[in-house]
């Protein structure tokens, strides 16, 4: 199932939740909508599901206008952020719900419904919980039951709203892996919303970065991380050092100090220099075009994280390998290995 969204606009009062969104999603993709809260990602998901309606724009499934159909007719599986399991029904009845409410003409008999529910509970590996109520389940279990319930109607599209948002870190990691392999197994076009960049980069085939109701960048996880299209994407994905610089005549200046880096075609004027924390080369004093004194060093795992005060007064955090231990008070030279310059 392919999904196409054209020029979607949705306003809540004067607030534009979606401000002209265009997006094409291919068959069998696992797509992440990534953005801060208020970026419109959940609104986009709800409009695709038919739970909200746009003010203008188009949504089509396989080239067919989806907006003329209600949520129930779109065959969309939706997993809610807080699962929205029916609290008065057992796990079994929750999963069976979508099959039991089908119109009589196409509804399966009780035995096949039971068989199908059993199959789905096996798929999410929770068949032993069939008789429990949602309040008796852990967060991760509820999440998987919500997924099984959404899959019961044989959806053509699977939509997940912050699927791991309410879970603790360990369960979240496990479920990410699990969702990936599940997607490979059932291969349904899937979209999930998240504000957690790590989650988006780790799980999705393609990532859509959104901000303020607009799409900032669409690309593979590698793309959006290595080649951020805008300052927002650079700042939002991965930890970045941001320095206010001035570009003129192809030279980059920080304060009155000229840096040894090329402007890379950045236009003249006040700009922002973005460097990943680990892309800042640290050496002895005088070794780089920037200089600063180490204020604080914390070492963990393979890196040491240093807080460095630059001569101009800016305080930055860098991640350095542990081959040479840094000392607080030490003067170091810094040189950006990879960087991007965006107009301020």
């Amino acid at each position: 199932m392919t999904i196409e969204v054209k020029n979607l606009v949705k306003k809540f009062g004067t607030f534009a939740a979606l401000d002209g969104v265009d997006l094409k999603i291919g068959n069998g993709e696992l797509l992440a909508l990534l953005g801060p809260s208020g970026s419109g990602k959940t609104t986009l998901l709800r409009i695709i599901a038919g739970l909200d309606w746009p003010d203008s724009g188009e949504v089509s499934f396989d080239g067919e206008n989806a907006l003329v159909r209600g949520a129930g007719e779109r065959q969309v599986g939706f997993v809610f952020q807080h699962y929205a399991l029916f609290r008065h029904m057992t796990v079994f009845e929750n999963v069976a719900f979508g099959l039991r409410v089908q119109p009589r003409s196409i509804r399966k008999d009780d035995a096949s419904i039971r068989a199908r529910v059993k199959e789905l509970l096996d798929l999410v590996q929770l068949d032993w919980l069939a008789g429990r109520y949602p309040s008796q389940l852990s967060g991760g279990q509820r999440q998987r039951i919500a997924l099984a319930r959404a899959l019961a109607i044989a959806p053509r599209i699977l939509l997940l709203d912050e699927p791991f948002g309410a879970l603790d870190a360990k369960v979240r990691k496990e479920l990410r892996q699990w969702l990936r392999s599940l997607h490979q197994e059932i291969n349904v076009t899937s979209i999930f919303v998240t504000h957690d960049q790590e989650e988006a980069l780790e799980v999705a085939n393609r990532v859509v970065v959104m901000d303020k109701g607009r799409i900032e960048q669409i690309g593979t996880p590698g793309d959006v991380y290595d080649n951020p299209a805008t300052a927002f994407v650079h700042g939002f994905i991965g930890e970045s050092i941001v320095l206010p610089v001035n570009v003129s005549d192809g030279r980059v200046r920080l304060g009155d100090k000229a840096l040894k880096i090329a402007a890379d075609g950045a236009s003249s004027g006040a700009s922002k220099l973005f460097v990943r924390r680990h892309d800042m080369q640290v050496g002895p004093a005088g070794s780089g075009s920037l200089e600063g004194s180490v204020r604080q060093v914390r070492s963990f795992g393979p890196i040491q994280r240093a807080v460095v005060a630059l001569c101009g007064g800016e305080i930055i955090e860098i991640d350095a390998p542990r081959d040479r231990e840094l000392q607080a008070g030490e003067i170091v030279g810094l040189e950006p290995r990879r960087y991007r310059i965006f107009a301020a």
Binding site: G50, L51, L85, F97, G98, V101, R149
Partner: peptide, 16 residues
Amino acid sequence: TQEEEAAISLGASGLQ
């Protein structure tokens, strides 16, 4: 309204 939304997206009618 989440449970109602879930029911509707699973294909339930308003009365159901």
